[in-house]
């Protein structure tokens, strides 16, 4: 199986140096071909398991409770402005 590491990295918002690509490509392709093992398993009519202990629809009352103060919430950011998180622009200027 071929993997376009550059394209997938972009999807995952990772920037890789071009010289790193061949190494990752080789390693990931080796791993992906190991996954071919699963091709021999018959999974016809088999359900998926996503909640392994079988819990379903766990709900609770929607009740307000104490939470972090604004100051605490902002305490770990490196970019803030007027008591808010400052984020990079996502729309380009026309």
């Amino acid at each position: 199986m071929k993997i376009d590491v550059k394209r997938v990295a972009k999807l995952a918002n990772l920037e890789l140096d071009d010289e790193e690509l061949p190494k990752f490509e080789k390693q990931l392709e080796e791993i992906l071909s190991y996954f071919d093992k699963l091709k021999e398993v018959n999974i016809k009519d088999v359900e998926i398991t996503s909640q392994v202990t079988g819990l379903e629809n766990v709900i609770r009352e929607d009740k307000a409770a104490p939470s972090l103060s604004q100051e605490e919430a902002l305490s770990q950011t490196k970019s803030q402005h007027n008591g808010l998180f400052k984020v990079p622009g996502i729309l380009e200027n026309e």
Binding site: F35, L38, V41, I43, V46, E47, I48, T49, S50, V52
Partner: peptide
């Protein structure tokens, strides 16, 4: 081919 299949194989292992 990958994720869904693996989650089905997971059921068989369980």
């Amino acid at each position: 081919a990958y994720y869904k299949k693996a989650m089905q194989v997971r059921t068989l292992i369980k």
